[in-house]
Amino acid sequence: MFDDLTDLYQQVILEHAKSPRNFRVMEDATCVANGTNPLCGDNYTVYLKMDGDVVKDASFQGSGCAISKASASLLTAAIKGKTRADVELLFDKVQNMVTTGEADESVGKLAAFAGVHKFPARVKCAILSWHAAKSAAQGIAETVSTEEPAE
């Protein structure tokens, strides 16, 4: 009866939410971006150390629900060693996956988030840190929000 719940909260997600990886402030980060969801108070900072075009190191800090925290944790692991273009490509794949449920083979462990698509209200949780990481990789140091504030 709760298949979709265990689809959403897969073991890997619960585990990363409980013990997030790369969960630290990076003092020597070259790019930093903040991701916030004003509707639920989720707030994450993603730190990247870029070496030219390549992500040498990635970490994050902040608080939020299990989905958003696990997503940030898995993200930092997934983008290490990737180029800017790779990060953007992966962003597109993750976004497509959490909205359609179709996981590209190349996403690896991130496939755990495919179940999110059955919970439309939680898509923003899963994609929040990805928005921040994309901004950071592009060198745009600003707060990205799930809600677009009016100018």
């Binding site: 709760f2 979709d4 719940l5 959403l8 909260y9 509707l39 639920c40 108070g41 939020g64 629900c65 299990a66 989905i67 919970f119 209200a121 939680r122 949780c125």
Partner: peptide, 20 residues
């Protein structure tokens, strides 16, 4: 997190509010 509480409760048919 409140959103996780509310998501699970919903699957048991219990409608709660989670947020600020």
């Amino acid at each position: 997190h409140a959103h996780d509480v509310v998501t699970i409760a919903d699957r048991y048919g219990v409608a709660l509010r989670g947020g600020h």
